[in-house]
Design a protein around this nucleic acid. Structure first.
Length: 412
RNA sequence: GUGACCGUAGUUCAAUGGUAGAGCCCUGGAUUGUGGUUCCAGUCGUUGCGGGUUCGAGCCCCGUCGGUCACCCCA
């Protein structure tokens, strides 16, 4: 037997109802917030991610599916959505058209991690990006759209973690201070953090090692080191959130694993996912577009995990639709007539099905039950002789005689 | 990548080192043209794979593959 590679999933119809419920909730919400859909490739030149996300990040340094095409160029299956969207935005010169663009997307992402609950190698995200404004309103809007989707899919136990990691200027100043502080305590740090001290000092704040957590409490805090502009920006974002009643929790240690973020960062977390607690996250990225060769254009966005959201609402019953009509026959001419009517009803848009094998009524009714049929249309010898089909409602159990050519009208 | 636990029928799970079983599902019947409840009958296996120990291995040992969970990090 040939098996699928680890960490990727087949999604069968019994899970599709919930899946589509989540996806449709997201798409409907995007529409109400006036976002336009964008479809970008799931494969890019490796540089898109290496330069966009940052070579020192975990994603780029150890989690990408990278391979060469026949010309020896390095391609990578996208590990996240933003970098590709930014590349497309710049490549198509979109920034010349509208001052502000609001996009949404959804689709598979790939990361070569060890699979576990809520973590797959191929997983699906939906997300949105806003280009062209530094206005804190847009930071708020992105968080608000995620909050609304979360509400619509029925997740009730979650927390929004919010932080600002500053702009180029204040962040680098803060990093210097942070590095100084931790260098003086270097010997007390865990091995990972000793390494992080050089590669990405911000990550020191994220360590769960007991000793490092203890050191964190007297480490400099980013919110005390924001420049005036970043401080004002952050205050506005919070003001807008308060205004619309979106509850959040400030977390000065929220550091995200992608290098491109500036100012606002946020994560939606829940305790229902085991080791993974985030089901959505994002932030502002004011330098990413120019890094891709576009004219300096600020941006803000988010991504949410389809599988994780599906897991959180796993217990929720999502009603699926059955087939409208199921035909029951006794073979021979009754089958011929059934097939004629079946085809006619399908042409008219009624979802319809039949078991073409000649079996007893009992097994055909069982099948109709399994297919969650709304009505059963019985075409037997009596019906064939009289020209009247027996139409039985599976909900009420009542049945009546309907002329063959009047079934469609009867259904309306 | 590191670690822990687990691999038995389509599925959920049993089986002191001694004949591989049950529930559900599926198929048929009781009801010769009426499903969902009930009763009866039937189908279902290289015990993940390879080696070893043993008179004898689903069970013990080694390896391997797969799964789950956790760490790291993130959706």
């Amino acid at each position: 037997m040939i098996l699928k590679p680890p960490g990727i999933e087949d999604i069968f119809p019994d899970r599709i109802n919930r899946w589509n419920f989540v996806l449709n909730s997201a798409i409907d919400t995007f529409r109400t917030y006036n976002y336009r859909e964008l479809i970008v490739p799931i494969m890019e030149f490796t540089d898109v991610f290496a330069r966009g996300i940052g070579t020192d990040t975990d994603i780029v340094s150890k989690e990408m599916f990278t391979f060469e095409d026949r010309g020896g160029r390095s391609l990578t299956l996208r590990p996240e959505g933003t970098a590709g969207v930014v590349r497309a935005y710049v490549e198509n010169g979109e920034y010349n058209r509208l001052s502000v663009c609001k996009f949404f997307y959804n689709g598979p992402m790939f990361r070569a991690e060890k699979p576990q609950k809520g973590r797959l190698r191929q997983f699906n995200q939906f997300g949105a990006e806003i280009f062209g404004s530094t206005d804190p309103y847009y930071d708020y809007e992105i968080i608000s759209v995620v909050d609304e989707i979360t509400r619509r899919v029925g997740i009730d136990s979650y927390t929004i973690l919010l932080n600002s990691i500053g702009c180029r200027e204040c962040r680098s100043e803060y990093m210097t201070g942070l590095k100084e502080y931790y260098t003086s305590k270097q010997s007390q740090l865990c091995a990972d953090c000793q390494r992080r001290l050089n590669t990405n000092p911000l990550r020191l704040l994220d360590c769960k090692n007991e000793g490092c957590v203890a050191l964190r409490s007297s480490a400099p805090v980013i919110s005390d080191h924001l420049c005036g502009e970043c401080r004002d920006h952050f205050a506005k974002v919070k003001e807008y959130l308060d205004l619309s009643g979106v509850k959040y929790q400030e977390d000065p240690y929220l550091v995200r694993g992608l290098d491109y973020y500036t100012k606002t960062t946020f994560e939606f977390v829940t305790d229902k996912l085991g080791g993974q607690n985030a089901f959505a996250g994002g932030g502002r990225y004011d330098y990413l577009v120019e890094q891709f060769g576009g004219k300096p254009t600020p941006g803000v966005g988010f991504a949410a995990g389809m599988e994780r959201i599906n897991l959180i609402i796993e217990d929720k019953e999502i009603q699926g639709n059955g087939v409208d009509l199921f035909f029951i026959h006794t073979g021979g001419d009754t089958l011929t007539m059934s097939l004629k009517l079946l085809h006619e009803m399908r042409k008219q848009g009624f979802s319809s099905d039949i078991d073409p094998e000649v079996k007893g009524f009992k097994s055909q009714f069982k099948r109709a039950e399994r297919e969650k049929a709304g009505y059963v249309i019985i075409i037997g010898e009596d019906e064939l002789a009289s020209g009247l089909a027996t139409v039985k409602s599976q909900k009420t159990g009542t049945q009546e005689k309907v002329p063959f050519d009047g079934i469609a009208d009867f259904m309306k």
